[in-house]
Structures are given as C-alpha cells and as structure tokens.
C-alpha cells in the first residue's frame, strides 16, 4: 500500500529526540521549582515592592548636594585606591607570571609556587581580603589598597602567565642559536610578544578595580563606600542618591579612559 501524505510528513525531531527534550525540560522545571521552594520568600513583601520602590525614590529626590565636596574627595580617594593598587599589582605580578608559566619557570617547585599564589589570590573575593586587612591594618585606605592589590595579583599573574605560555617559540630558539644568555632571550624574544597583552590586561584590571574600590568602604576600607554606608545607616536617602550618581559618573569616566588607553596601547 502506498504511504499517505500524512505518513510521509516531515517532522523536525525523531520520537526519541522528542522524548529526550521532554525529559530535559521536565528536569529543569523540577529543579527550578525545588530551588524556589527552598528559599523562604515572604510574598507580601514581594507584592509590596513596587510601592516601596516608589517610596524610596520619593525620599531620594531631590538628591542632596550639600556635602558634595566630601563626596568628591571620597571619589578621588577611590580613584587613588584603584590606581595605586593596580600599579603595585602589575609590578609584583610580573615575576609571579614568569614563574607560573610552564615555558619560563625555572623548575617544578617554582611552577607550583607560582600557581599556588595565583590560585589563593583568585579564590578570595576582594571584600573578604578587605575584611582581613581591615582587621590587620585597621580601617582606612591602606587596607583597601592592599586588598585590591592582592586580588589583582591573581588576575594579572594568570593572564600574563598564559600570554607567556602562548608565545611563538621560534624567535626564542633563534636567539638561543645566537648564543644569547637566558636573560637576553627573555628580554628580546619573550617580552616583545607579551607586551600587548600586558597593557590590555593592566588597563582592564584598573577598570575592574575602580568599580571594586567603590564598595570597599562598606567594610571600612576607605573610598566612597564609607560615605555611602554612613548615609544608608542614618537613612539620609538624599545623600545616598548623590553618592550613587557620583559612582555612576566615576565608573563611566573610568570606562571611557580604559577604552581610550586600550586603543592607544594596541
């Protein structure tokens, strides 16, 4: 018997694929609903949220610019924290990147030492570093700078180390064939190949650090966050609004400068 048109109709999935897709969808739905059920949502507060937003907004408007000079100083402090910390981290991360890259590290022990430094720096969040250093150095800018620096080390060291691992080995061999010593090979065959990444990564990290240093004040490590925290604690919502606007302006300016630098460097 000839198959009918209906029998020969094209379908996108085989029945086996259809069942697999159904099973995956069901699993996802189950997982999401289970995780939703575990978090205790107080639904009246959720329904109340739009009214609360409106209320908060009405308390914030108009922003209070009376303490603008203090805010501007805090912004400059924030900028300084980010810049100084990035600068120190860039310098310190170079030797770490050198020993954490497989093709330049002197031996296995240094390789693991380098990797250990990178991992321990990267696995701890900036805010946690800041809490730690506030406990050690007391509240203030110094704790903030060191916290940001520690977190940046891992980031910079890892990316620069990877750039070192990805270089073209052929110039290295050519220099070795001229009889150049190890230091000369590094300087003339490896450094030129890594420089573009080095600048790009440093600028990127400065940009990130600028944003991270705005929240450092929440744990007492200096910067604009201190004023923000104080204003929230005293329910001074109009000053909070000013600080938020200031942070946005700072971050946008930082972004613009970073983009400009990146274009310059590469």
């Amino acid at each position: 018997m000839k198959p009918t048109v209906a029998d020969r109709a094209w379908s996108r999935y085989t029945s086996r694929q259809r069942w697999t897709r159904l099973a995956i969808t069901a699993t996802v739905v189950l997982a999401v609903s289970w995780s939703l059920s575990t978090i205790d949502i107080i639904w009246p507060w959720v329904w109340d949220a739009p009214a609360q937003i409106g209320d908060l907004f009405s308390r914030m408007v108009p922003p209070d610019f009376s303490s603008l000079d203090k805010i501007v100083w805090a912004l400059i402090e924030t900028l300084n924290i980010a810049t100084i910390a990035t600068f120190i981290a860039v310098v310190v991360s170079l030797p770490i990147a050198y020993i954490a890259a497989q093709n330049t590290t002197p031996n296995r022990a240094t390789l693991w030492l380098g990797r250990f430094i990178l991992v321990s720096s990267r696995s701890v969040n900036t805010l946690i570093w800041a809490l730690l250093f506030v406990a050690i150095f007391g509240p203030g800018v110094l704790a903030g700078i060191i916290a940001i620096m520690f977190r940046s080390l891992g980031f910079l060291g890892k990316l620069i180390g990877e750039a070192i691992e990805e270089i073209d080995q052929r110039p290295v061999e050519a220099l070795e064939a001229t009889g150049a010593s190890h230091a000369k090979v590094v300087l003339y065959a490896i450094v030129p190949q890594v420089i573009p990444t080095f600048f790009a990564v440093s600028v990127l990290r400065w940009d990130i650090n600028l944003r991270e240093s705005t929240v450092l004040g929440l744990v007492g490590a200096g910067g604009i966050g201190v004023i923000l925290q104080g204003a929230i604690n005293t329910l001074d919502w109009r000053t909070v609004a000013t600080v938020l606007i200031a942070i946005i302006v700072l971050v946008i300016a930082g972004e613009a400068i970073a983009a400009w630098l990146r274009k310059k460097a590469i």
Binding site: P171, A174, P192, Q193, P196
Partner: peptide
Amino acid sequence: RAQRCRTGYIFQQFNLVGRLSVMT
C-alpha cells in the same frame, strides 16, 4: 653557549621577533 655566537643559524620559518623593527 658562548661558542654559538660564532655560528649563525637560519631557520625555515625565519624566526624573527615580529613586533620588533627590522633593525632591532
């Protein structure tokens, strides 16, 4: 290693440092 500077070596893939000038 020091002896190598008396022997020049030329490679199939030239092995120049691409980002440096010809002069360097």
